[in-house]
Design a protein around this nucleic acid. Structure first.
Length: 568
DNA sequence: GCCGTTTTCGGCCCGACTGTTTTCAGTCG
């Protein structure tokens, strides 16, 4: 089984954990972490880069040594350094370091003084009252750790849309005349959000922290200082509140938006100029030379303004230095939705209502793409009902002004890659979206073959929700994304970014990989109700994170151009 | 371990808060 990028990243992360506990040079530790992020965020698989004889040491944060180690892992499936570290100390030490209050130093102490090698060892040490006797530990910390062991912090990340609902309520509550803005991965529009980072500007900073502590939904207060307050809400989501003065707003917003790796890169640039960048501003000695707005700070650093969605240290800083950032797609660029259901199958509204809702979004067109017969639960259409629906759409189109309903289908991809409707039916349609709705657990090879075979049918214009994931509920099915995107390029078939908040599929990394290969994408809502068209912005969020421009997305085109573009 | 129009050696982001101390180390983001 070929090694995946994510597996290499995980090996590097674990290596970093163990090196850190061992007390290694912290910069060496950081190098492994940085490399893990680079590998993880790579648009292509390491395997394909190697077989194309690409020099891995050209990747950011990867030098000659790590390039060699990556090659070793791909070739052998093993990583010598990690394995020898694990021989010397238990691999689970990394898990222990994940507990609140426990970092590398204390874990090392636990291991050396109390022979704690596992979470169970730790439980026993606490029971025996041995923890509190260690230097740097105490009764309070012992209790905190015991509690965390008892109720393993559900390492939960929240869907962006869920976090948004929580954030909006909280922002409304905290509003105080100053600014209240949610930063962090929420502002970078990541598909899932681990915690809410809220920035407020106020002359009464400490009082805003007090107000947060008094919020109805607060379950626990983790920290509460004059400028920073951390709480956990009942839903389990953590909130970090930070108060700064107005003149620091821009620098603080950058600091709090992250990502951490992006911030480190910017601070490195500040360093090159003998300046210092922190959450209070950009400083030359003690003099603040920028900080009130983000634009000002980026400009002073010699960078173009980097949109939050790109701030992942995936090459955006280098592009900004050369003023070569892509112009990211916006919701306003979208001219139509190419994946829409009606009450003919599992949608809730008649075709006409869906069309009117789409038109109300300012769209020129939508493709009606109800399910095919195989998806029986949804009363999927057979050829006869498709024919009937086509006549219905013709009637509606004659009635509608300035709007076109495209005849379409979301045709089911069968287990062997054949389609659920005959070519004679598909050929009558304007837009064919082909999707997998069954047999999620095929082998990687079989699943990839299956979807490529479906794409080989020249009536197929778009592959719908290509990985099938449901965030937090169902893993993506096993796919060779490299082969899939190459096939999409060669066959001139589009891939979808499905904007349903629980799908967001393709994700940012895969969508970026597709773009890099020259594959066109469709950003669609998969709407089943008249109110779902608004989800388009979640799809656009991920498209922006994938660095897509309007050019990369087919449904930014006027209808005539769209027809030409998706024709095969 | 990475990286380089101030460097191939010597740097490597920066500050808040907590719990443990008696002036600060460790953790966290």
């Amino acid at each position: 089984m070929p090694v995946q990028n994510a597996e290499i990243a995980a090996m590097f992360d674990q290596t970093a954990d163990l090196l850190e506990i061992k007390g290694e040079n912290p910069f060496r530790v950081r190098a492994y972490r940085r490399a893990a992020r680079t590998v993880e965020g790579l648009p292509q698989s390491i395997r394909s880069l190697l077989s194309a004889e690409q020099d891995l040491s050209e990747l950011p944060g990867i030098g000659k040594d790590l390039a060699g180690k990556i090659a070793e892992i791909v070739k052998t499936g093993h990583f010598d350094l990690l394995e020898s570290l694990k021989r010397k100390m238990p691999g689970e030490l990394g898990d222990i370091a994940g507990l609140p209050g426990l970092g590398p130093k204390r874990v090392k102490l636990l291991y050396e003084k109390l022979k704690v090698r596992s979470l169970d060892d730790l439980r026993r040490a606490i029971k025996g009252g041995r923890l509190r006797e260690l230097r740097g530990f105490g009764l309070v910390m012992e209790k905190k750790i015991a509690k965390a062991l008892e109720k393993p912090a559900a390492e939960k990340r929240f869907k962006l849309a869920e976090a948004e609902a929580e954030a909006e309520a909280l922002v409304a509550y905290l509003r105080n005349g100053g600014r209240v803005v949610v930063a962090g991965s929420f502002r970078r529009r990541r598909d899932t959000v681990g915690d809410l980072d809220i920035l407020v500007t106020s002359k009464h900073g400490p009082r805003v922290g007090d107000k947060l502590v008094g919020y109805d939904n607060v379950a626990e207060v983790l920290a509460h200082g004059p400028t920073r307050t951390t709480v956990v809400l009942r839903s389990g989501i953590q909130v970090d509140l930070r108060a700064v003065a107005e003149e620091c707003y821009g620098a603080a917003l950058m600091y709090f938006t992250g990502s951490k790796a992006h911030n480190i890169a910017l601070r490195g640039i500040a360093n090159d100029h003998k300046w210092k960048l922190n959450e209070y501003g950009l400083f030359s000695g003690k003099r603040r030379i920028a900080g009130a707005t983000e634009e000002e700070v980026y400009k002073k650093l010699g960078l173009a303004y980097i949109p939050p969605e790109m701030r992942e240290d995936r090459g955006e800083v280098a592009l900004a230095l050369e003023d070569k950032l892509p112009r990211l797609i916006t919701v306003e660029d979208i001219r139509g939705d190419l994946h829409v259901h009606s009450d003919w199958t599992d949608g809730t509204a008649p075709i006409e209502d869906m069309a009117k809702a789409a038109q109300a979004c300012g769209y020129e067109y939508m493709a009606l793409t109800d399910h095919s017969r195989r998806v029986a639960m949804a009363h999927g259409l057979d050829p006869a009902r498709v024919a009937k629906q086509i006549r219905e759409i013709d009637k509606l189109n004659a009635k509608l002004k300035g709007f076109t309903i495209l005849k379409g289908i979301e045709v089911d991809i069968l287990k062997d890659g054949r389609l659920d409707l005959p070519d004679s039916t598909l050929s009558q349609l304007d837009v064919v979206v082909a999707s997998v709705h069954s047999f999620f657990d095929l082998s990687r090879e079989a699943q990839t073959d299956r979807i490529i075979r479906a794409m080989e049918n020249r009536h197929v214009n778009i592959v719908g929700h290509p990985t099938g994931r449901l965030i937090g509920e169902r893993e993506p099915y096993d796919l060779d994304m490299d082969r899939l995107t190459s096939a999409a390029r060669d066959l001139n078939c589009c891939l979808e970014i499905n904007a349903q908040p629980e799908r967001l599929d393709l994700n940012d990394i895969h969508a970026h990989a597709a773009k890099v290969k020259g594959v066109k994408l469709a950003v669609s809502t998969d709407s089943h109700t008249v109110n779902s068209f608004k989800y388009i912005r979640y799809g656009i969020d991920q498209a922006r994170r994938a660095w897509l421009t309007a050019e990369d997305v087919v449904n930014t085109r006027r209808l005539a151009d769209l027809r030409k573009l998706i024709k095969r």
